[in-house]
Amino acid sequence: LQLFIKTLTGKTFTVEMEPSDTIENLKAKIQDKEGIPPDQQRLIFAGKQLEDGRTLSDYNIQKESTLHLVL
């Protein structure tokens, strides 16, 4: 599923993930694309901070959802 990642600077980029992927996987993918170390990434969806060990489906993140990346 394609997700939109929006940064505080207003930049938006996309990543391609599976619902079974963990937040950790997502942070690694963001590191590949943007060079931001996972330990500096905080991801927010629907007002909640996402925890590394959980999956996208745990948070009911669907295709074309927008996640906010806070550094």
Rank of each mutant, 00 (worst) to 15 (best):
K11H: 14
I5H: 00
G10H: 07
P38T: 14
E64M: 11
F4S: 08
L50E: 00
K48Q: 13
T14E: 10
K29Q: 07
L50T: 03
T22W: 06
S20M: 11
V70R: 07
N25V: 12
I61W: 03
L71V: 15
Q62W: 09
I30N: 00
S20V: 09
S65C: 03
I44Y: 15
L26H: 00
L69P: 00
D21H: 07
Q49P: 11
G10F: 04
L8S: 13
Q31N: 13
E51A: 07
E64V: 06
G53F: 09
E51P: 02
N25A: 13
K6G: 03
I5R: 00
F4Q: 10
D58F: 15
I23A: 02
K29R: 09
M17L: 13
V15K: 00
E16Q: 10
Q40G: 06
E24L: 15
E18I: 12
I44C: 05
Q31H: 07
P38R: 15
I30R: 00
D32P: 02
Q62Y: 09
S57L: 13
I5L: 03
T9F: 08
Q31P: 01
D21F: 04
E24S: 15
P38C: 04
Y59G: 01
S20R: 11
I5Y: 01
N60S: 08
K63I: 08
N25C: 05
K33Y: 09
R54S: 07
S65Q: 08
G53N: 13
E24K: 13
Q62M: 11
G10N: 07
V70K: 06
S57D: 15
E18H: 13
L67K: 01
Q41E: 01
S65G: 06
S20F: 15
I36L: 07
I30L: 04
D52R: 04
G47P: 01
Q31V: 04
F13P: 00
K48W: 07
Q41F: 13
D21T: 06
N25H: 13
L8T: 14
L3Q: 01
D32H: 14
Q40W: 08
Y59M: 04
I36S: 05
S57W: 11
P38L: 15
Q40M: 13
D39K: 09
F45K: 03
K27F: 02
G35H: 09
T12P: 05
T66C: 04
S65V: 07
K27S: 01
L26N: 00
K33V: 12
L1W: 13
Q2W: 14
L69N: 01
D21W: 04
L3M: 04
Q49M: 13
N25I: 14
I36Q: 03
Q49G: 06
A46R: 11
E51I: 10
L1S: 05
S65T: 09
K6Y: 08
K6E: 11
G35R: 06
T14R: 08
S57N: 15
P37C: 04
L71G: 07
T12D: 07
K29T: 10
K48N: 07
G35W: 04
N60Q: 12
D32G: 11
Q31W: 14
P19S: 12
D32S: 12
P38A: 15
D52Q: 05
L43V: 05
Q49W: 11
I61R: 02
S65N: 08
L26P: 00
V70W: 11
E18G: 08
Q40I: 12
R54N: 12
L71H: 12
F13Y: 06
L69V: 05
H68E: 14
L43Q: 00
L69R: 00
T55M: 15
K27C: 01
T55E: 05
K48L: 14
K11W: 08
E34H: 09
S65E: 08
N25M: 15
I61A: 02
Y59E: 04
P19F: 10
G47D: 07
F13W: 07
K63F: 10
L3C: 03
G47I: 02
S65P: 04
A28L: 14
I44M: 12
L50K: 00
L43K: 00
I44T: 06
D52C: 03
Q49S: 08
D21I: 03
E16D: 11
K48V: 14
Q2C: 05
I44E: 06
S20A: 10
I23W: 01
F13S: 02
L1V: 12
Q2E: 09
D58A: 05
H68L: 13
Q49R: 09
D58I: 03
K48R: 12
F4T: 14
D39P: 06
E16R: 09
Q41I: 09
Q31Y: 12
K33P: 01
D52K: 05
D21Q: 10
T22A: 05
H68P: 02
F4N: 14
P38Y: 15
P37M: 06
Q31D: 06
E24G: 13
R42W: 10
G53R: 08
K29F: 08
M17F: 14
I30W: 01
K27Y: 03
V70D: 07
Q49E: 14
D32W: 15
I30D: 00
H68A: 06
Y59Q: 03
L67V: 11
L43M: 03
I30V: 06
L1A: 05
D39F: 15
Y59W: 02
S65W: 04
Q31G: 08
L56Y: 01
A28T: 13
Q2P: 07
P38D: 04
S65F: 07
K29H: 07
T66V: 11
I23D: 00
Q40A: 09
T22L: 13
D32Q: 12
L8P: 14
I44A: 05
I5A: 00
N25W: 10
I5P: 00
E18C: 05
T9A: 10
L56Q: 00
I36G: 02
I23Y: 02
I23Q: 01
L3D: 00
K29Y: 08
G47T: 05
L56C: 03
P37H: 12
Q2F: 10
F45H: 07
T22D: 03
G35N: 09
K48Y: 10
F45C: 03
E34F: 12
I36E: 02
N25G: 09
T22S: 09
P38E: 14
T55C: 03
L71A: 08
N60D: 12
F45A: 03
S20C: 05
F4H: 14
D21V: 03
Q41T: 04
Q40V: 11
L43S: 00
L56D: 00
L50V: 05
T7K: 13
F45M: 06
A46D: 10
T66E: 14
Q40T: 08
V15H: 01
M17A: 15
G35P: 02
L67T: 02
G35I: 02
K11V: 10
N25P: 01
L50M: 06
E51Y: 05
E16K: 08
A46N: 15
D32C: 05
I36P: 05
L71E: 08
Y59T: 02
K29D: 03
N60M: 09
R42Y: 14
D39T: 14
H68D: 07
E64Q: 11
P37K: 10
S57V: 11
D39S: 15
V15M: 07
K11N: 10
E24M: 11
N60F: 08
F4P: 02
K33L: 15
E24F: 12
T7L: 13
L1P: 04
E18V: 12
L69A: 02
I61Q: 02
G35S: 06
I44F: 15
L50D: 00
Q41L: 05
G53S: 13
S20E: 12
I30F: 01
F13Q: 02
P37Y: 05
G47Y: 05
P38S: 15
L67I: 10
T14I: 13
T12R: 09
H68C: 05
